[in-house]
Amino acid sequence: MQKVNYNTISSVILIIVAGIAIWETRGLSEMSYVFPRTIEIILLILSIAYCLKSFIRPTTNSLFEGIDKRKVLVMSLAMIGYVILISLLGFLIASIIFLGSLTWYLQRDNHEKSSKTKIVHVSISAVGVSVFFFVLFRYVFLVPLPSGLLLG
């Protein structure tokens, strides 16, 4: 990220995306391709302009400057993990685990409370929030929330 400008990288990605999208319109009838293909060509031209600009006037700062990358990474992984857990364990249990563990992680710098108190608070809130909304949606709004492959 230091040597290569992030604008150059994103413009190259955009050019590739536009290229693939144009390729995907092959075999469609005129009424299906006329709109997307027009947009893709415009996108391709804009991306090339963006690419050129990134060389002519390179930005000096790097992506994610001044951001606590570790926290962001943990948060992102937690969300991805949450989705996978839902598909395995079902909505309710996955939510309790996600809410509990993420809240626990975010409180790790907080030294005011003893860890025992933290565990109790975290568990209560995780179980309470999950169960409340599960019941609300399942029985009041009649939205069946996802069940997992392993557990109901």
Partner: peptide
């Protein structure tokens, strides 16, 4: 924040599923 942020994610997940029951 330690309570709020995970709860918001939780709510958005329910919401996005509830729209058309699609995982």
């Amino acid at each position: 924040v330690s309570y709020l942020a995970p709860s918001i994610v939780f709510l958005t997940i329910i919401g996005s599923y509830a729209i058309r029951n699609n995982f």
